[in-house]
């Protein structure tokens, strides 16, 4: 519990620091290409195009059926915008500490802030992508409804979830570098086990698979984003209240475990390099 408060205090106190550092992080990342930050849009756009072709057109045999009441491409974009952010943030977050500790170790720097500012730098790009996706959705007939109010809530949930998770992964992959490789593999797997590209609908005998898949908190976030962007029939977080509670319990547990391992190892991070 004590370590949780230490970490939380650091996060809140260093908010200005997080903002500035994430800005520089984003800048230094895209300084080398001519198109610079535009790549953060081009890259996901290409991926969406391929997935739309394979999963929307190819696999469904040109079937134009709706998914959850929207056309497939809109449905894909709403989910993929979030997935792209989560994927990048988890991967970068996991290696954030051991790649940057040399830069910051020489000072009394709150190390728990490192994964946070890396996630934030991805968050700006996410906002950009989201705006483009939002404009696109206007043309496919998804005019914003009152459900759009959910979006800030789900953004906040995503950020908190990512920070909590990255506290664990960044610590573990600093101690044992293989963890990062494992996370890469897991994320590749999760792309297909989260309803980003297809909507799992197991009923009857196989309904238990549905419950297993829903254990993944990203499931909640993806569906929440869709509800907000595509104007779902109701408030997702209230309609699935039990799921909302489950999500936050998971986040709190992640935070507790994350701050515990982080505090336990952080003095020795530099020894693991």
């Amino acid at each position: 519990m004590g370590s949780l408060f230490t970490v939380l205090r650091e996060q809140i106190k260093s908010f200005y620091l997080i903002r500035r550092l994430s800005f520089y992080e984003m800048k230094s990342e895209n300084n080398n290409n001519y198109l610079g930050i535009l790549w953060e849009l081009i890259n996901p756009a290409i991926q969406i195009a391929v997935y739309a072709f394979v999963f929307g057109f190819g696999m469904r045999g040109g079937h134009r059926g709706a998914v959850e009441g929207s056309d497939f491409v809109s449905w894909l974009i709403a989910g993929f915008a979030l997935w792209y952010f989560v994927n990048q943030a988890i991967l970068q977050g996991s290696k954030s500490v051991y790649t940057r500790i040399r830069m910051v170790a020489k000072m009394s720097f709150p190390i728990s802030v490192i994964p946070t500012y890396v996630i934030f730098s991805k968050f700006y790009q996410h906002l950009m992508l989201l705006i483009v996706a939002f404009i696109f959705l206007q043309f496919t007939g998804h005019i914003p409804t009152i459900q759009l109010i959910q979006l800030p809530y789900f953004m906040f949930s995503t950020l908190v979830f990512l920070v909590a998770l990255s506290l664990i992964t960044s610590t573990l992959s600093t101690v044992i570098r293989d963890v990062h490789m494992l996370i890469q593999a897991l994320m590749r797997m999760l792309l297909y086990l989260t309803p980003v590209l297809w909507l799992p609908a197991f009923t009857g005998k196989y309904e238990f698979i549905m419950y297993i898949m829903k254990l993944n908190p990203i499931f909640y976030l993806v569906e929440g984003y869709r509800s907000a962007l595509l104007g779902g029939p109701s408030w997702y977080m209230l309609e699935h209240l039990g799921y909302t509670i489950y999500f936050w319990v998971v986040v709190i547990i992640l935070f507790l475990v994350g701050s515990k391992v982080h505090i336990k190892f952080r003095d020795r991070f530099i020894d693991f390099l």
Binding site: L17, R20, Y24, K27, S28, M103, V104, F109
Partner: peptide, 24 residues
């Protein structure tokens, strides 16, 4: 000294100072 190669000198100054805990 830990300087970020991708950023300019000016940006590195701010970055380093931030990390040392200076205010805006």
């Amino acid at each position: 000294s830990g300087l970020n190669n991708e950023l300019t000198g000016r940006e590195n100054i701010e970055l380093k100072c931030l990390m040392l805990g200076f205010s805006k």
